[in-house]
Amino acid sequence: MNIHSYEKLWLIAALLLIVGFIATITYGSVGLGIAMIDDSEDTVNPGSLDEDFGEPRVEHVGENEYEAYVIAQTFTYRPDPIEVPADSEVTFYVTSRDVIHSFSVVGTNVNTMVIPGEVSSMTVEFDDPGEYGIVCNEYCGDFHHTMEGQLHVVPEDEFDMTELSVEADDEVELGDEATFNVSVENGMLDDLETTASFEIGDETVEEEITVAGESTEETTFTVDSSDLGEGDHDWTITVDDYEESGTLTVVDELEEENDGGNNDE
């Protein structure tokens, strides 16, 4: 076979180009550490994600290290928004409850297919705070175009994983004590030292609490209804930026319609 000398040159140049491309991609993998989505995660059953995968959530797993467990389903992402601190390393675990979706953070190279039965995992560094949109870029049904979510990278000092919940009496009989059970959950690994403050009428009570990492602390506020008097009383319980509020009704005599006690409306 006679090959023209120009064609030989071209052939060699083409081969060099190809080898050069492979080298750059390899450098991206080995040198820069851009890992591909792979088969490192165990499979899950889309029908029983609660056991296999758990609730959609963000977990604090190490200093500046977080894990986000995301479920994609027609036509939403959970959790939404996903909140993580800046200057952190976040590993996303994403799976689907129904059809094939994608999890693609707009304007970044965070982009993966989400296939039912499989879990996509990828570790991403977020240096700066910012708000990103998440879109599904794989057609998933009639309302595919409405499938979006939010990723909030918040400044480190504004980030916490505190959850406040309050269980309180709605109605008490004049003279009885009203109780407010407060539980503060700390999702971070470090201890949380904070103050719970309780306001009702013109009364304010504060209590220092320390919640150990990854645990929940409970405390109870009580108030004597005689001090408040008959009528509606608004209350507020505050822990850091979280606030729960409600209204306590103090009545002369509780109506006893059945045996259910004082929880009935």
Binding site: A14, L15, L17, I18, F21, I22, I25, S29, A35, M36, I37, D38, D39, E41, T43, S102, N111, T112, M113, V114, I115, G117, E118, V119, S120, S121
Partner: peptide, 25 residues
């Protein structure tokens, strides 16, 4: 076409990538 699919190992993707590059020839 499945570089971003979970459940396929990076090695298989790498093989497909090199084959694809040679398909440029």
């Amino acid at each position: 076409h499945q570089y971003l699919d979970p459940g396929i190992s990076e090695g298989f993707k790498f093989i497909a990538m090199t084959n694809t590059m040679f398909l440029l020839l």
